[in-house]
Structure formats: C-alpha cells, structure tokens
C-alpha cells in the first residue's frame, strides 16, 4: 500500500512538474477560456440584460470547450515517447494510475478555469447571487469533464484526425454535466434552491469517478498492444 501511494503521488507530481515546466498547457487553456467568453458580448451585443441571462451558459460552454482543448495531449506524449508502456507494465493497477493522471490534469487545467471564472462572470454582468453556485458547480463539474475526457483521450491514441474525433466522442458525453451545471446557476439567479442540481452534479462526479478510469485503462491497454 505504501509503495502504491508513492507511485500514485509521484505520478501526480511528475505530471504537475511537466505542466509547470512547459507552462504552455495551463496558460493556453485559460486564455482560450477567456477568449471564447469575451467573444460573446461582442457577438450578441453588450446589452447587460441579455448578458446576465446567458452568463451561466456561456461560461459553462467555454469551460467545456477549453477542457476538451487540453485533452488530446493527455496521453499523446506518453504514447509517443513510450512512457505509456512503462505505466502499463508497472505492478500497480493501471486504473489508479489513470486516476492519478486525471487528477493532475484537473489540477493543471480544471482548477485554473475555476479560479478565473468569477472574473468572467463579472465581465458577463452576472448577478452576485450566482457566483457561489457557479464556483460550486464548476468545482463539481470540471473533474467530471476531466474524467470523461480521459476515455476519449485514450481512445484516440494513434488515430487519424484525432482532434476532430475527440470532440465527436466526448462532447456528447459532456452534455449532462453542462445541463445540470447551467441549471444550477440559473436556479440560483432566480432565487430558487440549486441544491438538487448540485447533488446531481455530485452524483455524476462520483459515477464517473468510479467508472471512467476502468474504461480509460482498457482503452490504453489496447492502444499500447
């Protein structure tokens, strides 16, 4: 057990160290997130009422797209330089190593999105009652996105046109998270309880936490064969 935790944490540390050293991925995701959100006031017009109405949806859709953008590199470099084969050969279960990679991925891309989101809510003129719920919903939702995304990232290893393929595979699976994430914030904005939606988001997170590592590990194994 002790050895296992060592592997688990050192894998997370390795991923984070790589992300910090490259620096590009986290920054790219955050910048993409901001840019997409900024396009909306320019696209639909700066009228505050409209922006308030669509703020939750815009932030969620932008978060979804940026989460996807960071996804296709998740296993790609490991696949190309052979470290994936080493991961599979380690005595620790691959499912848990996938989980470690997912956690690292969320820490380097999901967490920055949550941190920057209040600023974007401000730009979109969201009412103050929505901020807390937006943060809670993103905190419950973005790990789910990372978990679901690992399946897609593992499936497309070695495929042609993998970027397009990834979006076709995982965007449909993101839809439930999107629906409940947006409706939680919308409920808070009109002073309704948003607890049910947050509970569903939590349920989605737990379900994908339990199931996604299995599917991703299976996909990684067949990719490495």
């Amino acid at each position: 057990m002790n050895v296992f935790w060592k592997v688990f944490t050192s894998l997370i540390q390795r991923e984070i160290r790589l992300a910090i050293r490259h620096g590009a991925d986290s920054m790219m995701v955050v910048m993409f997130f901001v840019l997409v959100v900024v396009l909306f006031p320019l696209g639909v017009g700066p009228e505050p009422g409209i922006l308030t109405r669509i703020s939750a949806g815009v932030i969620w859709v932008a978060a979804l797209l940026s989460a996807m953008l960071s996804m296709d590199r998740l296993f790609q470099t490991d696949f190309e330089d052979g470290s994936l084969d080493l991961l599979i050969l380690t005595p620790q279960p691959l499912e848990l190593l996938v989980l470690a990679k997912t956690i690292a991925h969320w820490l380097t891309t999901g967490l920055p999105l949550i941190i920057i989101s209040p600023l974007l809510a401000l730009l979109l003129n969201m009412e103050t009652s929505g901020y807390g719920v937006l943060l809670a919903a993103l905190a419950l939702g973005t790990p789910t996105l990372s978990l679901i995304g690992t399946i897609g990232a593992a499936l497309i290893l070695g495929a042609r046109r993998s970027g397009f393929l990834l979006s076709l595979l995982i965007l449909p699976l993101f839809i439930p998270t999107l629906i409940f994430g947006v409706s939680a914030v919308d409920a808070a904005l009109i002073d309704l309880p948003s607890k049910p939606q947050l509970l569903v988001l939590g349920g989605l997170l737990l379900a994908s936490f339990a199931l996604c590592p299995w599917a991703s590990a299976a996909a990684l194994r067949q990719a490495a064969e």
Partner: peptide
Amino acid sequence: GYMVLYNAFDEPTRGARAAAILAIV
C-alpha cells in the same frame, strides 16, 4: 462516433477495439 472511431485507425483491429470500448461506455 462509433463509426468514425472504427475507421480512424490504419490497423482495423485497433479501430474495432477502440470503438467497442466507446459502445460500452
């Protein structure tokens, strides 16, 4: 997604197995 993933690999067995995982998910 199943159909596109199936045909996205040069090696047919890879496509078959990747698409099978997607179908089960």
